[in-house]
Amino acid sequence: MNQLPQKGRYTPRRKTRRKKSRNKNSTTYILLAIVAVFVISFFGYRRYVQYKSETQVEMVQQEHVAFVKKVAPYAVVLGKEYGVLPSITIAQAILESNWGNSSLASQYNNYFGIKGENPTNTKVLQTKEYTDGQWVTINGRFRVYSDFRESMKDHTKLLVNGTTWNSQQYKQVLQSKDYIEAAIALQTDGYATDPGYTSKIIRIIQKYDLKKYDEGIK
């Protein structure tokens, strides 16, 4: 005897295979979307880093150009008056003050690390000096200036008049005919303890074409 299906009873068809297919397609789309987002993000980030790096380099270059333009005119004035090569003055200002960014330069307008003894116009700060083949940190008393031009003029007078213990200490610097001779003389005359001082000064002058400011000085 055949049994009739019960009224209202429904036996659904199996769609397992279609569900698996749909699930597989959905997973693929999600993975592709994730990969696409990753690729876009990665290359976008690389471009951002590159842009940021290029922007920072450009800003530094602009800062350097601005600093040279700031000190060069007065360096030429001092050069004509005292005979010190402007390229040497500018290069030393760059090196000694880190483009005007050192604490001594930015806070006290001392662009050349010039020391003093009078407590009323000096400030005690830490500095590094090369002694016995190594760098050591010491406390030094440095001159404080109201304007960077005062620092530049004091630096020029130091080269012209020498130190309190040797008035002829920088005679070779003054007698030098070009910036290379003057840079070497700074080292031999004892202006700085850094063994690489001469090469640093020459490199700065050549990189930023500071020689052009020496025209007509000697």
Rank of each mutant, 00 (worst) to 15 (best):
Q6E: 08
Y10N: 11
Y10T: 13
R14T: 10
R18S: 08
S21I: 15
N23Y: 00
S26K: 15
T28E: 10
L31E: 05
G44M: 09
G44P: 08
R46N: 14
V49M: 14
V57C: 05
V57K: 13
E58D: 12
E58W: 00
M59S: 11
E63G: 14
E63P: 02
H64W: 00
V65R: 04
A66C: 04
V68S: 04
V71Y: 02
V71P: 04
A72Q: 09
Y74P: 14
V76P: 01
G79R: 14
E81M: 01
E81L: 04
V84G: 07
V84K: 06
S87L: 14
S87D: 10
T89W: 00
I90P: 09
A93N: 07
I94A: 02
E96Y: 00
E96A: 13
E96F: 08
E96Q: 11
S97Q: 05
N98T: 08
W99L: 12
G113F: 13
G113V: 13
K115G: 09
G116E: 08
G116M: 09
E117I: 02
P119T: 06
T120F: 11
L125V: 15
Q126M: 06
E129Y: 09
D132A: 14
G133Y: 12
W135S: 00
W135A: 00
V136H: 07
V136E: 09
V136L: 13
T137K: 13
R141L: 09
V144K: 07
Y145R: 07
S146G: 13
S151Q: 07
K153P: 02
T156D: 07
L158C: 12
L159C: 01
T163L: 09
T163F: 08
S167V: 06
K171P: 01
K171E: 00
Q172K: 12
L174P: 02
K177F: 02
I180K: 11
I184Q: 08
T188A: 03
D189R: 03
D194M: 08
D194A: 05
P195T: 08
T198A: 15
K200M: 10
K200R: 14
I201T: 00
I204H: 05
Y208C: 06
Y208K: 05
K211E: 14
K211N: 12
K211T: 15
E215N: 13
I217W: 00
